[in-house]
Amino acid sequence: MHIALTKTIHTDFNLGDNLLLERLKADDRKVFTMLFEYYYTGLVIFADRYMHDTELAEDIVQSVFVRLWENRHAIKSSSIRYYLANSVKNNCIDVVRKKETQGKYVQRQMNQTTDHGEDFWAESELKHMIETAISDLPPRCREIFILSRYEGLKSHEIAEKLQLSQRTVENQITKALKILRKELKDYLFNFFLTF
């Protein structure tokens, strides 16, 4: 149910792309701000997979937005989402290559990042997907999963905190993962499977 909702939101935004692009070309700064707020954090995380350096990832994404505004009249792409993701990706690859020629990066890191493909979610999309799915978990299972994934606690720390055995905690996390994986299958993994 909630998944269907997510999909609708996502598609609506894509459908609105033509209109948004039109507004952008008409120098509408509000649309620029809106796009920035919607996509910025997601793109930083996307860039960080290539860069392994959040500060540098932020610099790259900021430059991409600067160029989005500067080149707004020349944009041919019909999808802003695709345009942004692609620009960020190309910039990252350029920078990584430059660093590689300076011997700062090893080839291995490049290979690791290629299999992420075009996988990129805006923060609100990811938040909506994951948090609605988590709220559907059985209470105990949810509590443990949140302690593990949101508060970054290790299984034995959670076990101590909740007076449970470590085995039970591991079981609950496993159970949560299994449920979430099924719930989010179509959304989180479609990129991966088509890559």
């Binding site: 701000t33 920035f36 994404v61 979610w121 923060e123 990811l126 994951i130 949101y150 993962l177 989010l184």
Partner: peptide, 22 residues
């Protein structure tokens, strides 16, 4: 793994100062 890192990603996104960047 993908699921695991996606939850991590979301947590990281929340720590990024969007306003300052804008």
């Amino acid at each position: 793994k993908k699921l695991w890192t996606s939850v991590d990603d979301l947590r990281k996104m929340k720590t990024i100062d969007k306003k300052k960047a804008l």
